[in-house]
């Protein structure tokens, strides 16, 4: 079932001189894990803002076309009602902090309190999420006294705890070390297995290659590519849109240029190990 449907959507922020989204058509099926890539200011965050109703409800500005989320007409639905369906994790985790709570535990509870969830259930859900994200040790810390990486995990936790069917996650790993990044991708993968729909804006293309099912490339407010990760991320045209390819794809393209008969351009280490490893064996006695 389609849980997000955008038809001919164009949108312009009030402060912007030109359209920030142009004639965007997008259908997302329930349970998909989609990565949105593209250079800075290509429209990635704006796309998220339209799906969660903040554009135009909060930012104002002009929107044409239609946006439906879980069957709701977003243009006629209040942001508060949409927050049951859509969770958004901010690009800058420092901005997500409510600023009104004194501990991480209370910060993560905040959204549930606002939704009027019973107290006992709040405790259960917060406990589960902080264990899931490995941040139980931060529970009593002040939210403003966290490192970048810790702050990013707390921001993610405070959205996951609300259990929205659709998660919009805007560069969740920008402050994280490699292990933290890996952890976050594993968490998103796990949410996918629970049937959640995830739209992830991310620059770390090698991670995207490993986890995303489908990749959307944006440029100048338009969706310019939309397809399976393996197809989109092995296409050197990405470079013209200011997006790098996975390291293994760059390597594959180079080896092919040098005459190595690679059938497919690999986008992950696993794929590369198989395809390049096989060629080595064929080469004989290496």
């Amino acid at each position: 079932m389609a849980c997000i449907e955008l038809k001919q959507v164009s949108y312009r922020y009030p402060t912007s001189k030109t359209a920030n989204l142009k004639e965007v058509n997008l259908t997302v099926e329930s349970g998909e894990f989609i990565a949105v890539i593209g250079r800075n200011e290509a429209g990635k965050t704006t796309l998220c803002n339209v799906i969660r109703g903040f554009a135009p409800h909060f930012y104002q500005g002009k929107l044409s076309g239609s946006v439906h989320v879980n069957g709701k007409d977003v243009l006629r639905t209040e942001i508060g009602d949409l927050s049951w369906d859509v969770g958004y994790v901010f690009q800058n985790p420092f901005n997500q902090n409510s600023g009104v709570k004194a501990t991480v535990y209370e910060e993560i509870s905040y959204g549930l309190e606002n939704l009027g969830i019973p107290r006992r259930e709040i405790f259960d859900r917060v406990d589960e999420v902080i264990n899931l994200l490995g941040i139980a040790y931060l529970a009593d810390k002040h939210p403003m006294k966290l490192s970048g990486g810790q702050c990013q995990r707390v921001a993610l936790a405070s959205i996951i705890v609300m259990e929205p069917a659709i998660l919009l996650i805007d560069e969740p790993t920008s402050q994280l070390d490699p292990k933290g990044t890996e952890d976050v991708f594993k968490i998103i993968d796990m949410l996918k297995k629970k049937g959640k729909t995830t739209i992830l804006v991310e620059h770390k293309i090698d991670r995207v290659a490993e986890y995303a099912d489908r990749v959307i490339l944006m440029d100048e407010g338009r969706i310019v590519r939309d397809g399976p990760a393996a197809q989109i991320l092995s296409d050197p045209a990405l470079l013209e849109y200011g997006v790098t390819l996975p390291q293994t794809a760059l390597l594959g393209l180079r080896l092919r240029e040098e005459g190595l008969p690679l059938e497919r351009i690999p986008i992950t280490i696993d794929q590369a190990a198989v395809s390049i490893g096989a060629l080595r064996k064929e080469g004989g006695g290496i």
């Binding site: 390291q247 760059l250 390597l251 180079r254 080896l255 040098e258 005459g259 190595l260 390049i276 060629l279 080595r280 080469g283 004989g284 006695g285 290496i286």
Partner: peptide, 16 residues
């Protein structure tokens, strides 16, 4: 680097 990778692959016996 990718460059070193290609060179090592050539050096390891595979004729390109």
């Amino acid at each position: 680097t990718a460059e070193e990778f290609a060179a090592a692959l050539r050096g390891s016996g595979r004729t390109l």
